[in-house]
């Protein structure tokens, strides 16, 4: 697939949920099982993305400076630190560790 087509298709796909919600009657989505799975789907995909973004390397699993950075991010999120501060400090830790040559 061409990158541009993927962007347009993906945008249309995301938009389709928004439009669908305006078109269908409220009771169609009110089944507790549907809303439960929908909210857990967000959790599952985000968690999976955390795993992949932290450990995936060119060939399989890699342990590098991203791991302590993500641990720091989790600690900061737990302390309810604002989003942008979490991202900047986590990136900063990874950059520092690499600068010191501790974890490639």
């Amino acid at each position: 697939m061409n990158t541009w087509w993927a962007i347009l298709l993906g945008s249309l796909a995301v938009y389709s949920w928004k439009l669908l919600g305006f078109l269908i009657p409220e009771r169609a989505l009110s089944h507790p099982r549907v809303s439960r799975i929908a909210s857990l789907m967000t959790v599952a995909l985000l968690a999976a993305l955390v795993g992949v973004q932290t450990f995936a390397g060119k060939s399989g699993i890699v342990l590098d400076a991203r791991v302590p950075a993500v641990v720091l991010a989790a600690l900061l999120a737990w302390r309810k630190v604002p989003f942008i501060v979490i991202v900047v400090l986590a990136a900063g830790l990874a950059a520092l560790l690499r600068f010191l040559g501790w974890m490639a």
């Binding site: 932290t54 993500v70 989790a74 900061l76 979490i86």
Partner: peptide, 30 residues
């Protein structure tokens, strides 16, 4: 550290949603 920033962004996004046992279980399995 911008590669770590992406992972940290997902951690920050997911954290507020881990408020139930089910959500934590799903996150762990996923």
């Amino acid at each position: 550290g911008l590669d770590a920033a992406a992972a940290a962004a997902f951690v920050a996004l997911i954290w507020a949603r881990l408020d139930t046992f089910q959500a934590r279980l799903v996150a762990l399995i996923a």
